[in-house]
Design a protein around this nucleic acid. Structure first.
Lengths: 117, 117
DNA sequence: TCCATATATCTAGATTAATTGATATATTGC
DNA sequence: GCAATATATCAATTAATCTAGATATATGGA
């Protein structure tokens, strides 16, 4: 993942309403949730939710698809995967001994090997 | 990790100067880097760097220790581990089939099992 | 004690983010 | 075409963040 994308993803999830919204969407995979229902679930006005969903979408964390009158949003779990990979490559990858239960996997998977000495 | 802590960590890393600073510190584990040297590396004024380090420290991502006149900062890699665990538990844990190379580990480690149906 | 070095704190200005009422756009059914 | 529903966009306000100059605090050495 690009460095600028990592910033977008971290900043998008680093906000209470958005993190909670994303967690709702993850739990409702793969059906997704309509924007209006999300607003009700989170008890925020629909335009506020719309703005938050736009931030999450710009970060690639969600995708909305029109379904009749509603727009149903779904979590892009691959984006979480990419974020985890980035974190492991940059941090645990360079210091496998310090990363507990994930160590063995990092050691096995070449894609997770560190690029830093 | 507490929900409020997750927000702190994500927001702390979701800023270009801070993410780059943290990456420098990860690379320099376990020696650490003095605050002033970090400011030079990142080409920002020392008080700006001090403010960023305070945010990272409040999120538990770094810790500073006085060494003579300098204060040497070190990355808290365990915090990254905790963040990854949180992400896997909340997202991949509930949908192991969608999480690629990490799937097997999540399946093996009881601590990473999902709490969401 | 005095000076130099290193970092944190204070303060203020500038920028960006969050929230929400009002309005526009798109879809469905009559 | 018209009304109803669902969502996005606009506009304005408030709040939070980022930045950096000036100053305070702490350490070490002469």
């Amino acid at each position: 993942m690009e460095n600028t994308d990592v910033i977008l993803v971290l900043a998008a999830l680093g906000q209470p309403t958005r993190l909670e919204t994303f967690r709702h969407l993850v739990r409702k995979e793969p059906e997704g949730i309509a924007a209006g229902e999300l607003a009700r679930l989170m008890a925020v006005p629909q335009n506020t939710m719309s703005a938050h969903l736009a931030v999450l979408a710009r970060a690639g964390l969600v995708r909305g698809e029109r379904q009749s009158r509603s727009i149903v949003y779904r979590a892009e779990l691959g984006r979480v995967q990419a974020l985890v990979d980035y974190l492991l490559k940059d941090c645990c990858g360079g210091h496998p001994a310090l990363c507990g239960p994930l160590t063995s996997l990092v050691a096995q998977d070449p894609a997770l090997q560190s690029t830093c000495p």
